[in-house]
């Protein structure tokens, strides 16, 4: 995905809010107040407002910012922008993306691109091409790669090239050793945090899929995996723990790629293991939740090791433009 300039994100969010009526016609928009409301700096807001004016969505008020165009917009209405839903709160990730520094916005995309290819071999990363691809400067590109380097996802060779891969069984083993300690804590911590009805729905999805015995699509499987390893982890109140869990969940890529290129297999085992975790969560059994999740993670690790071997006989299907295969 090509990353948009900062002002463009602000512009799109405001345009959407206007289109959906969350910023009613006549609302007065001042750059400083909007920047505060959106929790961003002022220059991108100023630029975004200029663009919106060019698109005819807002019109300038003499010396007092802009006014949202539309029926009945004759005099500017001064509103407390904090009372208005400007669209960010609805979408957590977009909100985070908007307030995060540039390197943070693209870190996840770069990580995914790299993980998507390393099960297939070894690749060189071009800093320049990465910058061009995401429309960011060289220093931002370097910042992103340094972060991934710190997490041992990539390394520098003797000629100082950035190298990614190959994803090894050792990496999976090391990740698993950490993950089986951390993730059960996070998921057990989510007990009482996730609404019971949501948990019941998650268990029902796993149970129904198991009983139907119908082959699942990669997308369905992905959603099932996200419910436990994403939503439940996120629900834990310990944010530090959650962040750490995410950095050791990279083995999930093997399952995702395997599902996409080879097919969804062994789903029955995964579903039964998930259901068992939910059973424990629903009765508030912390120890049982931890044990059931650890069992699932161990079993899944075995599957990942076997699946990595299958992936390693193929070439990477598609590569981000800043990656070049070297072996």
């Amino acid at each position: 995905m090509k990353h948009r300039p900062y002002f463009k994100i602000v512009e799109d969010v405001l345009a959407l809010s206007i289109a959906e009526g969350r910023l009613p016609a006549g609302t007065q928009l001042m750059a400083s107040a909007l920047a505060k409301r959106l929790n961003v700096s002022r220059p991108p807001v100023t630029r975004a407002l200029k663009e919106l004016e060019d698109r005819g969505l807002i019109e300038p008020i003499d010396g007092h910012g802009y006014m949202v165009c539309g029926e009945g917009a004759t005099t500017p209405l001064r509103r407390n922008l904090h009372e208005l839903d400007v669209g960010f709160d609805l979408n957590q990730t977009r909100d985070e993306a908007l307030v995060a520094p540039s390197w943070e916005r693209i870190l996840e995309s770069v990580e995914t691109d790299i993980l998507n290819c390393t099960p297939f071999g070894t690749f060189m990363i071009s800093e320049t091409e990465l910058g061009r691809h995401f429309d960011v400067g060289r220093s931002v590109a370097r910042e992103v790669l340094s972060r991934l380097h710190g997490r041992r996802m990539i390394r520098k060779d003797r000629q100082s090239h950035w190298i990614a891969g190959p994803l090894s069984a050792r990496m999976l083993n090391e990740g698993q050793e950490m993950r089986r300690q951390l993730e059960p804590l996070a998921v057990a911590g989510a007990i009482g945090q996730i609404p019971r009805v949501d948990l019941l729905a998650m268990r029902e999805t796993a149970r129904a899929a198991l009983n139907d015995g119908v082959a699942l699509s990669p997308e369905q499987m992905e959603a099932i995996e996200y419910a436990l390893h994403g939503a439940c982890v996120n629900a834990s109140p310990n944010r530090l723990l959650n962040d750490m869990v995410k950095t050791v969940q990279f083995s999930g890529i093997v399952n995702r790629l395997f599902a996409a290129h080879i097919g969804v297999h062994d789903a029955a085992a995964v579903l039964a293991e998930h259901r068992l975790v939910y059973d424990h969560m629903l009765i508030g059994d912390r120890g049982g939740t931890e044990a059931a999740l650890r069992f699932h993670l161990d079993a899944d690790h075995e599957r990942s090791i076997s699946r990595l071997k299958v992936l390693s006989i193929f070439d990477a299907p598609e590569l981000a433009p800043y990656l070049t295969r070297i072996y």
């Binding site: 891969g165 069984a169 071997k309 390693s312």
Partner: peptide
């Protein structure tokens, strides 16, 4: 047999 580290083995073998 295909070893667990086949991915890594391939890289070094090609070298």
């Amino acid at each position: 047999t295909f070893m667990d580290e086949h991915n890594y083995l391939m890289r070094r073998w090609r070298e």
